[in-house]
């Protein structure tokens, strides 16, 4: 059976696999029904390309990394994802790949990304699952078990390590269309809901990482407020803001600064969110204002989208 599956004269296994890699990078597989290549499945959009990738995977002795490299360094993958109205009308799903794909990141990647930008991410590999922040009483409310949250480094590990109780999965992940893990699933539709916006704006992880990112902006971002803002913007989007964008961010930063200069209690309350100690060498009002600015940047469509 194992030999038959990977026999070079049987291209079916590799077709299914490369199609899933394609789906991972482009959002939609060359065969859209990645779970079904049979009679009920959909015809591939680029049959020759799929055949070639499938045989290429076999030829390179099933080298997965080489296949990933081949896909992500292709001209197709590196296209801009900007789209004109006429192209959008002709190919709304981008099946013909005349542009790069543009997809919202998954819940776990969004969390990992903000942890990385803030410098909080614990990068060591392996080890047991961890129990990061969860809403109080999450398990107790419907089961007889109790969630005991971890502290320190364990709060900031990649989402891959988050303890997963299948009957009560982490709600913030579920809001971002995570798979429940009760049954195997090959693809899950990515939808948007206001609950995602509430998570990004108010959840403890996102406020704490905004504060840590603000500390970096204040310490490492340069002298002027513009430079500091540009530093944070670049951390999350990999580019500098345009002058229009910079203007909008400077304006709102001014409003935040005014607010927290006039209300030290509010500033301290905001800075008290999360367990990671705050950098006490930084001025509280300045840090609070920059925290709100970092939060604004984290909430940008561009930050949570792969384009």
């Amino acid at each position: 059976m194992a030999r038959w599956l990977v026999d070079p004269s049987n291209p079916l296994t590799s077709r299914v696999i490369v199609n899933r890699y394609w789906q991972q990078f482009f959002g939609i597989g060359l065969v859209k029904t990645s779970e079904n290549f049979g009679v009920q499945g959909e015809h591939p959009s680029h049959p020759q390309l799929l055949d070639w990738l499938a045989t290429e995977l076999v030829r390179t002795k099933w080298n997965v990394k080489a296949m990933h490299r081949l896909i992500v360094t292709s001209a197709t993958y590196r296209q801009s994802s900007a789209v004109s109205p006429s192209l959008l009308a002709r190919d709304p799903e981008n099946r013909l790949l005349a542009r790069g794909s543009r997809r919202r990141l998954s819940g776990s990647v969004i969390r990992d990304q903000v942890l990385a930008m803030s410098g909080l991410l614990a990068e060591h590999q392996g080890g047991p699952s961890v129990k990061p922040y969860m809403p109080p009483g999450l398990w107790r409310s419907i089961s007889n078990a109790k969630y005991v949250q971890d502290h320190g480094d364990k709060l900031y590990r990649r989402s891959l390590y988050t303890y997963w109780r299948r009957t009560v999965p982490p709600p913030t992940m579920m809001a971002f269309n995570a798979v429940e893990r009760e049954v195997c699933i090959v693809q899950k539709e990515q939808t948007n809901s206001p609950l995602q916006a509430l998570t990004m704006m108010n959840n403890i992880t996102f406020i704490e990482t905004s504060r840590l990112m603000a500390e970096r902006m204040l310490r490492e971002g340069g002298k002027s407020p513009e430079d500091k803002i540009a530093f944070g913007f670049r951390l999350s989007t990999s580019r500098f803001p345009t002058s229009d964008e910079s203007q909008i961010l400077r304006d709102v930063h001014r409003r935040f600064s005014q607010r927290y200069r006039n209300d030290a209690t509010a500033a301290n309350a905001l800075l008290g969110v999360g367990e990671f100690p705050r950098d006490s060498s930084l001025n509280a009002a300045e840090l609070a204002a920059m925290t709100m600015l970092a939060s604004t940047i984290l909430n940008l469509d561009e930050t949570i989208t792969k384009e």
Partner: peptide, 25 residues
């Protein structure tokens, strides 16, 4: 509803200012 309220120290005016700039961007 999970995370429906603003974090401590963020009032409605601050939230609105944040959302206005976010929407512009």
């Amino acid at each position: 509803v999970l995370d429906v309220y603003n974090p401590p120290g963020v009032d409605d005016g601050t939230r609105r200012a944040m959302l206005e700039s976010l929407s512009k961007l």
